[in-house]
Design a protein around this nucleic acid. Structure first.
Length: 423
RNA sequence: AGGAGCGUAGCUCAAAGGCAGAGCACUGGGUUGUGGUCCCAGUUGUUGCGGGUUCGAUUCCCGUCGCUCCUCCCA
């Protein structure tokens, strides 16, 4: 084979579509229930939008960006996530002057340049929501409840929710200082990556999978002990709302997440039925991001979920009904003359909202009936020279095999009646 | 970036140095104009690509491309 899709990019084939449609349908119907409106931002931005917004030291920016130069010599990047773009759009269109609270959702492709594996590709798809303009803990709880509600609506009950608060920047500074102070003497027991992180991004050491690092971190300080009273209150209130909503969660003081912009609440939803890439949803509060982009200090919270991973689960659990093509009627013809009339009849049916097909492969009548059967036609209409000269057409019920003959004039109404009574 | 596994018919897979096969699918026939079950027959290949060893390579070796999974990190 000479041509294939670039590494990490792949085709979503017609046979996969029912799953994608199920997810998209659910997102589009659930988001408005919570008051979120759709926003669509471009799939690429100037590189600095992500570099600044997401954070230079993050993995996403430092090694996973799909970056290239356009013809004007500008550095462009295919969006690795959507929050930075949404905040950029929020400020660009001055929404802070138009509405007190902006609640938006999105759905679309994201790009990260890394080795593909199960549940991870270079182009992948996310749905997500952002609420900009309120620091109220109820909004944090709403985000979490929205993200799990969506999964539940799709039939996924077996998901875990982990929760943490990483406080405000001051808390985090205090904590990071303590953490570095604690880790410095233990440096030798850390992996190479983590020794580097000690200088660049010490928080990331917390979720290093290396066993030795885990051991070191285990007895170290925990961020939740360094929250200021406001952040502590906020966190407690969020937990209170979650309890009120009956949402089970697991506190994980080591959950820090990979993007720099998070403050206070962070959460992840995961499934143990996935492979190594088990995170379904990730999100949190980002009270400093709008300001970082040059706006007034504006609190915000959001989440994003991966559609590929969701589709993987739905396929495994067979939660989505797979319908074959959905053909109402197949029109079999036997020669050129009947095909000409047949084309006209099929067109007429389609104009009337009936899914109809005719032979495109010059098949025998036997072959045509087989095709009609495989594609799930309820009725096959047979138009041969015999019928044509009589001004009639034969209707075969594909389930019972019963056949009747009707005049061509009655054809449309007879078909409509039959399809109505069967459905 | 690193590690492991895999590339044979449209699909799922056999052949472990000696004629490249089976099932499914497809086409035709049994049925002069009738599907699903059944029976009979037929079509289908640069064995990913390039080189090497050999009388002989799908098989062994080297390289290369691709895919998959994993480490890291995340959706």
């Amino acid at each position: 084979m000479k041509y294939y899709a670039p590494k990490g990019l792949y085709d979503i084939k017609p046979e996969d579509m029912p799953y994608w449609h199920a997810v998209e349908r659910e997102v589009r119907s659930t988001m408005p229930l919570y008051g979120y409106e759709e926003i669509r931002t471009p799939i690429m931005e100037k590189t600095e939008v992500f570099a600044r917004g997401v954070g230079e030291e993050t993995d996403v920016v430092s090694k996973e960006m799909y970056t290239f130069e356009d013809k004007g010599g500008r550095s462009m990047t295919l969006r690795p996530e959507n929050t930075a773009s949404v905040v950029r759009a929020y400020l660009e269109h001055k929404f802070y002057g138009k509405e007190e609270l902006s609640k938006w959702y999105y759905l679309g492709p994201m790009f990260r340049y890394e080795s593909p594996q199960k549940g991870r590709s270079r182009q992948f798809h996310q749905y997500g929501a952002e609420a900009i303009g309120s620091s109220d803990p109820s909004l944090d709880a709403e985000m979490i409840s929205l993200s799990t509600d969506l999964l539940r609506s799709l039939g996924l009950e077996e998901v875990g929710l982990t929760l943490n608060s990483i406080g405000c920047p001051e808390d985090r500074n205090n904590y990071v200082n303590q953490l570095v102070e604690y880790l410095e003497p233990e440096k030798d027991r850390l992996c190479n990556d983590c020794r580097a992180r000690l200088d660049t991004n010490p928080l990331r050491i917390l979720d290093c999978k290396e066993e030795s690092c885990q051991k070191v971190v285990e007895n170290g300080p925990e961020i939740t002990d360094y929250l200021c009273s406001e952040c502590q209150d906020h966190f407690d209130t969020v937990k209170g709302y979650l309890n009120q909503l009956g949402l089970d969660y697991q506190l994980d003081p080591k959950l820090v997440r990979g993007l720099d912009y998070y403050t206070k609440t962070v959460f992840e939803v995961f499934s143990s039925d996935l492979g190594a890439q088990d995170a379904l949803v990730g999100g949190g509060r980002y009270d400093g991001l709008v300001e970082l982009f040059g706006g007034d200090p504006t609190p915000a919270v959001g989440f994003a979920g991966g559609i590929e991973r969701l589709v993987l689960l739905l396929e495994e659990l067979e939660r989505v009904e797979m319908k074959k093509n959905g053909l109402d009627i197949y029109l079999a013809t036997l020669d050129e003359e009947t095909k000409q009339t047949g084309m006209e009849l099929v067109q007429e049916l389609r104009n009337g909202g009936i899914r109809a097909e005719i032979d495109y492969l010059d098949k025998s009548l036997q072959g045509q009936l087989g095709y009609a059967d495989r594609y799930g036609a309820e009725i096959t209409a047979i138009l041969g020279p015999r019928e044509l000269t009589e001004g009639e057409i034969t209707l075969r019920d594909m389930e019972t095999g019963d056949q009747t003959t009707v005049s061509l004039d009655e054809f449309r109404s007879e078909i409509t009646n039959r399809l109505d009574s069967e459905s």
